[in-house]
Simulated assay, not measured.
Amino acid sequence: MQTPSPNVVVIYDSLIARDGAAAALAGYFTVNQVPLEKFITEGSFDAPVNVFCVNAGELETTKQVKKVLQTCQNEALFVLPTHNSDGITRLRGITDAEFLVLPFNGNELRSLIKKALNRSVERSWDTLHPQKRKALKEAVVCFENCFDLVQHGEPVPIEAIQDCCHHIRDAAELGDLNNWIDALDNHHDYSFRHSMFVCGTLSYFAHAIGIGGADLDQLTVGGLLHDIGKAKIPLEILDKPGKLNAHEWSIMKLHPVYSNDILADENGLDADLVAMAVSHHERIDGAGYPSALSGAQINDQVRLTAIADVYSALIDKRAYKGSMTCEAALDMMSSFEGHLDMDLLRSFRGFVLDQVHTLP
């Protein structure tokens, strides 16, 4: 369920390392395989990340890699065919880039590439207003920490999340939701990107219609945590680059149940906030999941979260679909009677279109 990914250049003099890297990246990235000698003679290829699949144990190879790194400014990672201590020591002498040694789990390499891609996206935040920059940089650290703790069976860090969401509230006071969305648009951690779309949309909308104080805090924190249950979904499903099959979808639909398991026992979390994570896939007509709630059983916070969640999914791009314009997304959502709260959606539509019409 990832955004379409850019090209990755696999630079190799080791066929076995090249094949291992290519197998891990197939379907997730567009891979251009280039022999090391050709890369040296023809120069840099147009890709944000270079994966060097090389025999670090060969002194001449290390010299060639050093030459390439001196002229190439792209992010670099290494896949080594064997663990050669002398070669790794020489490699460490010319670069601090991360490396993997065969055999490895494909998720490891894909994760390293996503982090490398995201570093350039996160550097672009330096041009934002200081409050928005601080909110995003705090959020990416907080979100990654939350997912990591949940995956290791630890409780979510509520105080850190609340502090992070205060910065998001400060950013929302500046207005311009589209600027927030644009800053996140090319981030390659889909779970983070989507949660920040939803969290930002809720906070910006709530601020615009006069919601403040504890209610605004609750919506912002609830938005950040609304998909926390996905931390328990296998990466092979969570990061799948295409549509999920029926079995995979049945597993994905468990994430609200996992959210309840994660959040229900947290001290100090309001039940309405927990409901945002557990019930935002419920529908007004009772055809949603996980509990088939309907009508008055679905509170306003959950109804708002459902709108933000659907809107964020429609305007985002995936490997299997392009993004919609905000107008097209709102038009489609207007046909979701029985699913979404139409009165709240009309207010939301006005807010979003006002944002569009006030663009410079």
Rank of each mutant, 00 (worst) to 15 (best):
H152M: 03
H194R: 05
R318K: 15
C164S: 00
A116R: 04
D331K: 15
K115L: 09
I228S: 06
R123V: 13
D343I: 00
T61S: 00
I113E: 00
K132A: 05
L149D: 08
L314V: 00
L184S: 12
V79Y: 01
N107Y: 00
S44R: 15
S191W: 07
V10D: 06
L330E: 01
Q70P: 02
E58T: 08
D163A: 07
Y311P: 00
G295P: 09
Q162Y: 02
N50S: 15
T95W: 02
N105G: 05
F99K: 05
F143D: 01
S323D: 06
C146E: 04
V150Q: 13
L293P: 14
N118T: 02
E37F: 03
T30P: 10
S250K: 01
A296G: 05
S334E: 14
I40P: 08
S44M: 08
L184K: 04
I307D: 07
C72L: 11
D126P: 05
V121G: 10
A206K: 03
I307M: 03
H152I: 03
D227Q: 15
S259D: 11
H167S: 14
D176A: 10
L353I: 14
E159L: 07
S259H: 13
K38H: 13
T62Q: 13
T41D: 15
S259W: 12
I16M: 15
F205Q: 09
D309G: 05
I161N: 11
L244E: 12
R123Q: 06
H207D: 04
G286C: 06
A246C: 02
T89I: 12
G213Q: 03
M196L: 03
G212S: 13
N145F: 04
M332K: 09
D309N: 00
S44Q: 15
P241M: 07
I11M: 04
Q301T: 07
A231D: 01
T62M: 14
D343A: 12
K115Q: 05
D13P: 03
A292M: 09
C53N: 10
I307R: 01
E282L: 01
T127M: 15
V140C: 12
N107I: 08
G20Q: 02
S195T: 07
